[in-house]
Amino acid sequence: MDAVQEEVWLGSIPVCVELAGDEVVGAKAPRPYWAMVPRMSYLPTLAGALRTHFSDSIAQLSYRGGLKRVDEDSEGTEEEPGFSRVWFSAPEPLRWQRPAGVLYDACGGGSLPWRVVVHFSNYPRSLLDLEEDTCERTFFHALKQAVHLETGTARAALVMPRVQQSALWKAVASGDRAAFAAADVKNESPLEAPPRSVPVRLVLEAGKTVVQLPFSAYDSRGRKRTLGETLLDGDRLEFLTDASALRAHAVDLDPDLPLIDTWKALRHADHFLYVLVSHTQR
């Protein structure tokens, strides 16, 4: 399991980030921003570097009134002009609260580099439907949910000192597995002990829908339940009746794999196992 986790954490995606066409000022678009983004990380971790890289364009757009505050038309919330919330599209708006690897796979994978467009204005709130929150807080919210499913309580995540939280998020952002392991949630029971429930997020409809479900790792006889028994159970999960394939980290998963072992090997930094579900074409 440890060797597989090491390989998973080493995975990165070459990304070419271009400025949105409607935010280009002048006849020539600025040069793209290139980065290797760890699959375990999140696109918003690039926000600071992107603001610096596209600072001239942002300044010109802001000067000409092209940048609006995030909630300019709402009461009680303002942001500094020119620094509206960063969002991404490829070509549809990307739900930035999901790990970069999950986003890339949900978009179909395909040729590299992954070409992504960055936007600094006109945040599509109705499409993204995300809470007023930062990526870091969203990550920790997911981590607390997963730990609660694993142990029956989120206490281990809730009592983390701020310095430990900072170290954990820095490790996630940089894809540093050793640093992550040192700062990760320390449950009262070791990882080898079976979790009360296995935290799973099923990614459906080209990444537009995520279904979060807890699954038991063992059946009534104490036998390890397989992916097929849990995730392809059409009687329990009607929307998976015609599912044809399961994938995680761009790898097809054998339905006969034990769920608990797959979770231990392929889970993300927020302790969730993200599984992309493909459906039979009708």
Rank of each mutant, 00 (worst) to 15 (best):
L246W: 04
L231K: 05
A167L: 03
A59S: 12
L112M: 14
P91Q: 13
R69Q: 15
V277E: 05
K186W: 01
V37L: 13
L143V: 13
P258L: 01
W114Q: 10
E72K: 04
V210G: 05
E136D: 10
Y218G: 02
P93W: 09
R177F: 05
G48V: 05
A29V: 09
L149P: 00
A206T: 08
E150N: 00
G48L: 09
W96N: 12
L149C: 01
T45M: 14
I260S: 06
H53P: 03
D176P: 02
V211A: 14
P161D: 07
R225P: 00
E79R: 13
L127W: 00
W87V: 11
H119G: 10
S74C: 10
A179C: 11
P99T: 12
V163F: 08
D56C: 05
V37M: 13
V159L: 11
G21N: 11
A217K: 05
E131N: 11
L94Y: 13
Y123C: 05
V86G: 06
L259G: 07
V4S: 12
S57F: 05
W263C: 03
K170E: 15
T52Q: 10
P214S: 04
G66Y: 05
L158W: 06
F140K: 07
A248D: 00
S174F: 05
A250P: 01
R247D: 00
H271L: 03
R115H: 15
F140I: 10
N122L: 06
W87R: 07
L253K: 00
E188D: 13
Y63K: 14
Q164W: 01
K224A: 08
D235N: 06
S84C: 12
G108E: 09
V70P: 00
F272G: 03
A106L: 06
A167Y: 01
Q165E: 12
T138I: 11
V251F: 00
V172N: 06
V86S: 07
L227M: 04
V163R: 13
S174A: 14
L202W: 11
F215A: 10
V117H: 10
L232E: 09
D133S: 14
P99G: 11
A269E: 02
D176K: 06
A206C: 09
L43F: 13
L213I: 07
R137I: 08
A35S: 12
L273T: 04
L273V: 07
F83T: 14
D256M: 02
Q60F: 04
A269H: 02
S216L: 09
R267L: 00
R162M: 12
V8A: 09
T134P: 02
K186M: 03
E131P: 07
L103Y: 07
R85V: 15
R282A: 08
L130Q: 14
H53L: 13
R223L: 01
L232P: 03
L259Y: 07
H53K: 09
A178I: 10
G110F: 13
K264N: 02
L50R: 03
A269P: 01
S12F: 03
D254T: 01
K144L: 07
S166P: 00
A217E: 02
E92K: 15
Q165H: 04
R69P: 04
E192H: 06
L50I: 12
Y274E: 05
R196L: 15
P32S: 11
E23C: 10
A248I: 00
